[in-house]
């Protein structure tokens, strides 16, 4: 995306003019603060501007120490999951004009992972959970000389969970994950689902065994927070339910 959108209305932004918005940020600098604090900035923004553009405007024009992760800026890389107005979203995919602008837009780090600075959290436990569920194709025997065949129907079976960008919006919206750091969390189960339901894969048994663990899939309380949070529209809770059913079916 163009970085200049913070100061200039883009060419196609004719529908919505400029407006005032107050950004209420949950700040924490480990080298200065003993605890997190709120900070307000009132800005003039434009029709196609996203929360990320507002954060950039603050960082680039007001306070360079404001710290957050971001990269692609259009909802593909998964860097900028944040808690915006109390809900997990990607800052680059949340248009300011779609939020109620008569009150401040609150931005906080995602929950359940240690805050390192402002909106930067420790992602390592999240990736560790993903790594633990064998997130790779497991096959036996020699590889065929050409591609493995897979019907369009079999390919469609796990399509939804291939969309995951590992932003952690789901896992960090899960009340079980907040209270119990041992739980794998929704994303790791989504990652397992993607392979368990892939007709080419032969590792389902091992993955299901891992997810049958005390801290596995049974901890899910079906609150649907994860599904609501997913910026890719993955039916996360449904995927978790399918994994649960696969476990029950296997036991039976």
């Amino acid at each position: 995306m163009a970085t200049a959108t913070v100061e200039q209305a883009p060419a196609a932004a004719d529908a919505v003019p400029s407006f005032q918005v107050t950004m209420r940020l949950r700040r924490f600098n480990p080298e200065q603060d003993t605890e997190a604090r709120w900070e307000d900035h009132t800005l003039t923004m434009y029709g196609t501007d996203r929360v990320l553009d507002a954060l950039h405007k603050i960082k680039w024009e007001i306070d360079g120490s404001l710290t957050f992760r971001r990269s692609c800026a259009h909802g593909i890389c998964g860097s900028d999951a944040m808690r915006i107005n109390g809900r997990n979203r990607l800052a680059c995919k949340t248009l300011l004009k779609d939020l109620p602008l008569d009150k401040p837009v609150t931005v906080e780090p995602i929950k359940g992972l240690a805050v390192l600075k402002d909106f930067v959290v420790d992602m390592e436990p999240f990736f560790e959970a993903y790594r633990s569920i064998m997130p790779f194709l497991v096959t036996s025997g020699n590889d065929p000389s050409r591609e493995r065949r897979q019907s369009p129907e079999d390919r469609a079976r796990y399509d939804d969970t291939t969309k995951c960008i590992m932003c952690a919006a789901c896992t960090s919206s899960c009340p079980v994950y907040w209270t119990d750091g041992q739980y794998f969390g929704p994303q790791a189960i989504v990652g397992a689902h993607r392979f368990i339901f892939d007709s080419r894969d032969e590792g389902a048994e091992q993955r299901l065994e891992i997810l049958n663990d005390r801290d596995g899939v049974w901890r899910c309380r079906t609150t649907f927070n994860c599904t609501d949070a997913c910026p890719r529209g993955i039916e996360v809770t449904k995927a978790i339910q399918e994994v649960k059913r696969a476990l029950l079916f296997r036991r039976g």
Binding site: D143, E147, R149, R155, T162, R200
Partner: peptide, 19 residues
């Protein structure tokens, strides 16, 4: 391309299951 498929890449498929 075939290497990626063998690694598990979920390519779209033809009706008879090829990439």
């Amino acid at each position: 391309v075939l290497d990626l498929e063998k690694m598990g890449l979920p390519f779209n498929r033809t009706p008879d299951g090829m990439i």
